[in-house]
């Protein structure tokens, strides 16, 4: 559990980060909290000759809530998400989800930016950000660009981020209606057996908008547009719940691991989604 030798850099501005990335290309990786990358390096599953620590880079912190949306700096930790009362009022699903990530010690180091940029299908924030229709800001040698969370993930650990780009912030439209982040895991610190993020808007007894994303049930997070659509225009009765879970089942593609075989995961995914929808609907 000792990593191969690597050079450690701690630049103080983004220009320094970008120039290191340009100089070392594939051989360099940026690190935020390090809670995904460092274990992989210790297992010698990730070979990172040049490690660029973002802790000293300015401009990556802070949570800003405006009328147009919420901006979360990439280096904001899960603990900061949990502690921010204004954020919990504006987008309570973030706090509910962050509390289900790992344990307090990990949350003190683990960042939103690292969680969404790493591309690990087990991470909770990517699915959540797809549910919330977040946008990721990337900076690179050619400047700044925005990529919707729903277009960001390509495969396990493969994302739309270029090798010379850094994810700097997440922007979220102000969510409306009821919410729920429901997660089944084997123990504290585990990735999800299945998890569902749900935002739902109610007008009278009718659902007018619904957004659903699933975690750790494919090699990427799964935004299930069809599952959300199945709820819209309904009173979220049993038939609608069934239609939504059926639609979700068509989008996920879980694989067997120590948490269980595919049939179990699909079944649990359905149960978790139903519960998430029910809880979100009760809060809508």
């Amino acid at each position: 559990m000792i990593p191969a030798a690597f050079a450690y850099y701690r630049p103080t501005d983004m220009a320094g980060v970008i120039s290191l990335l340009q100089e070392h290309g594939d051989d360099a990786r940026v690190m935020a909290g390090g809670h995904s990358l460092i274990p992989m390096m210790k297992l010698r599953m990730a070979d990172v000759p040049h490690l660029i620590d973002l802790q000293a880079v300015g401009g990556l912190s802070g949570i800003a809530i405006g009328s147009g949306g919420i901006r979360i700096g990439a280096m904001v930790t899960q603990s900061e998400i949990i502690a921010d009362d204004a954020l919990s009022t504006a987008a309570p699903i973030l706090r509910e989800a962050a509390l289900q990530i790992a344990d307090p010690q990990v949350r003190n180091m683990g960042t939103v930016g690292g969680n969404v940029a790493n591309g690990d299908p087990g991470n909770d924030m990517p699915g959540l950000m797809q549910c919330l229709d977040a946008t990721f800001s990337l900076i690179g040698p050619d400047g700044v660009r925005d990529v919707p969370a729903r277009d960001f993930y390509e495969a396990a650990y493969m994302t739309a981020r270029g090798d010379e780009e850094v994810l700097t912030a997440v922007t979220i439209p102000l969510p409306a209606g009821g919410y729920a982040y429901e997660k089944q895991k084997r123990k504290i610190g585990d990735y999800a057996t299945a998890a569902a993020a749900v935002q739902i808007v109610k007008d009278g007894d009718i659902c007018t908008a619904a957004s659903i994303a699933m975690t750790n049930l494919s090699d990427t997070p799964i935004f299930s547009e069809a599952a959300g659509a199945a709820l819209i225009g309904t009173s979220v009765d049993d038939a609608a719940l069934q239609a939504a879970t059926d639609a979700m089942q068509g989008d996920i593609d879980p694989s067997e691991d120590n948490r269980g075989p595919v049939a179990f995961k699909k079944h649990v995914a359905g149960v978790i989604l139903r519960r998430a929808i029910a809880r979100a609907w009760s809060r809508a």
């Binding site: 084997r186 057996t193 948490r259 269980g260």
Partner: peptide, 8 residues
Amino acid sequence: HDHWRIWK
């Protein structure tokens, strides 16, 4: 008796 075995 982990989750999946109980489920099974």
